[in-house]
């Protein structure tokens, strides 16, 4: 299967290991992976601010970059939801044509139907599935299906598993008090638990939670689910 890897702009910039891990997981699963070097941003920041014309320009650029593949795969539920759920509603003269786009876990489970990636990670892990993965892609179970097959990994449930981390893109800087309050509540529920790391499907959520935890010296090692799945091969 010929897939294009879309590495969201902030992952490219701040978390390149997540991009490398995603590439490794996809290749290990037998995909032929193509990485367009002209890719930039899916357009979610202007879209969430209500600036749909600017978002459409981003979408047009995105569509031009990602042609001629069977699927586009990205290690972010939020960016995948932008393409899958919101591109169709963007204004514009011509309809947008984009190959089917999936978040990594969703792709591995729903398209490849491949749950075991031979990964090993010894320890107790909290899981944070990004809200757009659950509420827009309706694929909140996929990360669990994959992580349950990682050897050595024990999943630690938290009361706050389904709570938003408070990131919300521009929301995090437009309403910092609310954003911080939301993230703090989520972290507070982790405190009494016995865990070694937090596994997330979205690096943006990870950035929010880690940024908060570091400021208050609450140890929190954040791993992206791609890094966990690539674990045995790196």
């Amino acid at each position: 299967m010929r897939v294009a890897l879309f590495v969201p702009c902030f992952i490219n910039q701040l978390f390149p290991d997540v991009g490398r891990a995603t590439l490794a997981v996809l290749e290990n699963a037998g995909c032929e992976v193509y990485v367009p070097l002209g890719q930039t941003c899916c357009g979610q920041p202007p879209f969430n601010s209500g600036l749909v014309d600017e978002a459409r320009r981003a979408a047009d650029h995105f569509a031009a970059q990602f042609q001629g593949v069977d699927a586009i795969v990205t290690p972010s539920g939020s960016c995948a939801a932008m393409v899958r759920c919101h591109y169709p509603s963007l204004p514009g003269q011509t309809p947008l044509s984009v190959p089917p786009t999936y978040e990594l876990c969703q792709f591995l489970v729903d398209v490849l139907n491949r749950l075991d990636h031979g990964a090993t990670l010894v320890g107790r892990g909290l899981i944070h599935v990004g809200c757009h993965q659950r509420n827009e892609l309706h694929s909140g179970d996929a990360p669990f299906a994959l992580l349950r097959r990682v050897s050595g990994l024990e999943l630690v449930p938290s009361l706050s598993d389904e709570w938003c981390c408070g990131f919300g893109g521009t929301f995090s800087v437009n309403y910092p008090r609310l954003s911080v309050a939301m993230g703090s509540r989520k972290l507070a529920a982790y405190e009494p638990l016995d865990y070694n790391f937090l596994i997330t499907t979205d690096s943006s959520c990870g950035m929010q939670l880690q940024g908060l935890a570091e400021r208050r010296n609450q140890g929190l090692r954040v791993l992206h689910v791609a890094e966990v799945l690539a674990g045995a091969h790196s």
Partner: peptide, 17 residues
Amino acid sequence: RWSSERDLPEMPRQTFL
């Protein structure tokens, strides 16, 4: 507004692309 209560991640040596 971000960093008053949250740390920012470090910039890695090289981007993914």
